[in-house]
Design a protein around this nucleic acid. Sequence first.
DNA 1: ACTTGGCACTTGGTCCCAGGGAGTGCTAAC
DNA 2: GTTAGCACTCCCTGGGACCAAGTGCCAAGT
Lengths: 338, 338
Amino acid sequence: MNEPRKLEVLRAIVEDYVHFREPVGSKALVDRHRLGVSSATIRNDMAALEDEGLIAAPHTSAGRVPTDKGYRVFVDHLADVRPLSAAEKRAIHTLLDGADDLDDVLERTVRLLSQLTNQVAVVQYPQLGRARVRHIEAVSLAPRQVLLVLIADSGSVEQRVHAVPEDVDRDRLAVLRDRLLSAAAGTPVALLDETLAAVVGLLPPGEQPLGAELARGLVLLAASSREERMVMAGTAYLARSTGDFLQSISPVLEALEEQVVLLRLLSEMAGDPRGVAVRIGRENSYDGLAETSVVATGYGLGDGPKIGVLGPTRMDYPATMAAVRAVARYLSKILAGS
Amino acid sequence: MNEPRKLEVLRAIVEDYVHFREPVGSKALVDRHRLGVSSATIRNDMAALEDEGLIAAPHTSAGRVPTDKGYRVFVDHLADVRPLSAAEKRAIHTLLDGADDLDDVLERTVRLLSQLTNQVAVVQYPQLGRARVRHIEAVSLAPRQVLLVLIADSGSVEQRVHAVPEDVDRDRLAVLRDRLLSAAAGTPVALLDETLAAVVGLLPPGEQPLGAELARGLVLLAASSREERMVMAGTAYLARSTGDFLQSISPVLEALEEQVVLLRLLSEMAGDPRGVAVRIGRENSYDGLAETSVVATGYGLGDGPKIGVLGPTRMDYPATMAAVRAVARYLSKILAGS
DNA sequence: ACTTGGCACTTGGTCCCAGGGAGTGCTAAC
DNA sequence: GTTAGCACTCCCTGGGACCAAGTGCCAAGT
């Protein structure tokens, strides 16, 4: 058995199936690809591929369709991430330049990615956890209400009104805030807890309860934002990838609303050597996504927040991977610059 | 012709069609409702209703289906808003109590409404425009970067980092902020523009450029938040209302993503005497929503932000209207209390 | 003036059947 | 290891018959 050719056949099947959206047979294969052998030979190869579980036939006399495992082999061994076209690169630049806010940047990014891939795109907000504290603010609104603001060097700003047990005036609050800020500035948000606890211990006894309460509020703030939000766009594409896929659109929409599910999914996705991680069909532990693939990668520093695309397993992996990677890179650049 | 009975027939048709999701014929009608007359009589009534454009037949030998106009008459003259069941009321209380944040409240509310109606629910954020300024904060982050925070008595907090043309130190900024705040506190956010302009004029000449810049930033902040956000939940229900409706799910999803469209739609919706506004099918100017109805009402004070539900024209209007109204009332109460 | 039973008519849905097409697996020969 | 040929399987399509549901209308009844 000719191993390289067999893989070539798999590639051809995947490409044709993605393109024409219907099972592909041996004859069509030799017609459309220069495989240099006859359809009978291809049939033998296909039988072997089927034995290995890489392709499957919906019924006896239909062509073959790639299985999740088949896509996996395709993605791992056969797909080269196709570079974007010049027009696409231009689109990225024009759409993303001129955004101001972090919110605005993410919003535009996710729309862009969705349009590039014709699929649902999601992007995770930068995690405060990995960022460092840039600024802390505490403003007294009412006698026992304090507005706490936590600003990270990732550019994100979190704020919440926090109730405190005793009345505080402006000046007292300002002093406390300065103490907390000078201790916390520059420390990773993830360590805010210990850092603040240490400072509170050094406060004059009379100030300790209030200080502790403020510290608690700030830590809560950091935690509640680490419990992550995300933005998404392009849900309409789900409905447009009609056909058999349509029955399963409802669970997918549910998954998209259950942000917790999605967030876990994204954070589980380890980057592969080429920098883009792919989860195919049932590889996603979540049942509602059994017929969907997720292509994602991190952006920003380190193994940061994720950005990705979600679509039917029958998707154009090389193109999608390229788009995700390109957009993630550009996004990283923008965030680093601002 | 017996007018009251004709309307009764219309009601029966609407109810049955909503219930069984298939065209309803004269015979089925007399079987399921105590109309007291024979099917032939009903046929005559139905012919009349069809002449008036209130119902239509998909094809010659099918039953009749209400038209948009038919639903309109039903909603205006035949539907009494059915009170919620005790269980539903309990659900509202348990789900909404215990929310802290404004974000959290709205999030829970929209989920709740979606579950109550089995449809897509949307809620608009409170508009800063109608609220009054409670607090203004300006924090210098870097030499030429100031974090501006605007807090309204509606409970909403808007913040953004704003670039200023000259270096500012803490104290100078604090003085400026106090001037701005004391002038603006209590004025409607919508009038922030003029109010601040007046104060800036009274500043010492050296402070005017900076003051003007801060004022500009605050006005921008107010404006950008008035340009409104919204939360939604239950998109999965769209897909579940399967059938002929499914083709049109894609435009609906698009409309939901185009928040601008939705926001305009909601704000156009004038309350009707019973306090809940209904837009049926093509009454929505937006094409993508030609087969969807929107049931909405305002919450909070006056003709405030809107909360509503969106689903197929073939929906249970009385139940939906009741749910929307009940949830809106409870939401108002919660927001007023906090 | 309504209401009603009866009846002819229309039409979509379903079931069945046959034919065609696409594709496969296998075998035997190259 | 490759290829041609062939029998076989199975889906899809279209046509035809049939049925059920529903209508519109008319003539008769109240």
